[in-house]
Amino acid sequence: MMTRWTGVFPAVTTKLAADGSLDLDATAASIDRLIGNGVSGVIVLPMLGENASLKVEERDRVIAAAVEAVAGRVPLLSGLAQISSADAAEAARRYEKLGAQGLMAFPSLAYKTDMRETVAWYKSLAASSGLPIMIYNNPIAYGVDVTPAILEQLADTPSIVCIKEECGDIRRVTDIYNSCGDRFSVFCGVDDLIVESLALGVTGWVSGMTNAWPAECVRLFNLAAGGDFAAARTLYRVLTPAFHLDTHVKLVQYIKLAEHLVYGAPEWVRAPRLPLVGEERSRVEAIIKTTIATLATL
């Protein structure tokens, strides 16, 4: 039977110590907190998890720690971000052996594939392991757009089951359904488009700010998915200024700072990223603290 992922799947930040080394205890604690607050799945090693900044053995350690922390309670996916098809296939097989239950697969990080090459990339990856695949479509960041026409060519590959849609054009959700029907699960991949996306029929959400506010984000998803848009809008308007931070090039720093302010998680990042300072830090802190205070009044 085809895998059907639904619900809120936070893109988990990889917690680090001040010296840039992995803090697996803090990462595991954050995963446990997310599951305890009702998320439907977790994704480690996303872009938000600083995947490209980690060494191969570090990625393996993150997955192994996540498998232990999740303990079978929800689906555990791993981001897969590689340059060559051979490296992507090898990583997929390794992540499967480590216990990941699915892949959120980037396009090639070093080459902007055309339509034919994009189809070949994902078909090759699908053939490399037994894991179901969520396509990570973020043409703004990676220059490759997995269009409805490409999805039509991937429809005969059973293990490609889902697309995280992050092209920025809300009309894409309807275009996917019109082209492919219900063949693929469609997940919103942008925090500040979630209510709009749910109105158009997405069945899931890969979320950044859920790391900071899991209970509130799960509630928002459930309200909108259940058709209570009046209540959803009230909560959405409170969260949206913080959700806008998910679309910035410094989303890793911004979301880690939100986690730090909300529940004390370490905010350290790995170079070339640097912690926030000065006016930028003050501005982001103000947004997060205002959100904390307003949520407390609801």
Rank of each mutant, 00 (worst) to 15 (best):
P132Q: 15
L220A: 01
Q101D: 02
V146P: 02
P275F: 04
L198P: 02
L54P: 01
A29M: 11
A29C: 07
A88V: 07
T174D: 14
V56E: 09
Y236P: 00
V119P: 08
L154R: 14
E285H: 09
G72S: 07
Y142F: 09
A286W: 03
A86S: 05
L200H: 10
V277R: 14
Y111R: 13
V249L: 13
L131H: 12
N211A: 00
R94W: 04
L24D: 06
G130V: 06
V252R: 14
C217Y: 06
G130Y: 07
A29Q: 14
I140Q: 07
K250Y: 12
R273E: 14
E68H: 08
E267T: 00
D192I: 02
L76R: 08
H260C: 13
L298V: 09
V186K: 15
S197G: 07
C217G: 03
I135M: 09
A265R: 10
P139M: 10
F106I: 13
S128M: 06
I83W: 12
H260Q: 10
R116H: 14
L109S: 14
P272W: 02
V12K: 07
G20S: 00
V195T: 15
A64H: 04
A28K: 01
I135P: 10
M209R: 10
S21M: 10
P275Q: 10
A92Y: 01
I31G: 01
D169M: 06
L200M: 12
T147C: 00
A26E: 02
A212K: 00
T294G: 03
A69V: 07
E58D: 04
A230G: 09
L16Q: 12
E259G: 01
L22E: 05
S128I: 02
A258N: 00
R219Y: 01
R219G: 02
T297F: 03
S40V: 00
E196S: 11
Y111L: 11
E90R: 15
K256I: 04
N211E: 05
P75F: 02
L34Y: 00
L54H: 06
V238L: 15
R116W: 09
E216K: 06
N178R: 14
V195D: 06
L295M: 08
L220C: 02
N138Y: 13
T147Q: 04
V252W: 12
G181H: 04
I140N: 03
S179T: 04
K289P: 04
C167R: 14
A105Y: 15
V74W: 09
A66P: 08
G189Y: 00
V56A: 08
D169K: 09
G36N: 07
G49R: 14
A65H: 07
A65F: 04
E280H: 05
E50V: 03
A199W: 12
T203R: 08
I255A: 01
G99K: 06
P266S: 11
P275D: 10
G264W: 05
W268Y: 12
M2V: 15
V146T: 13
S30Q: 12
Y111S: 11
V119H: 12
A293T: 12
D60Y: 06
T113Y: 00
A242Q: 01
V67P: 01
N37L: 00
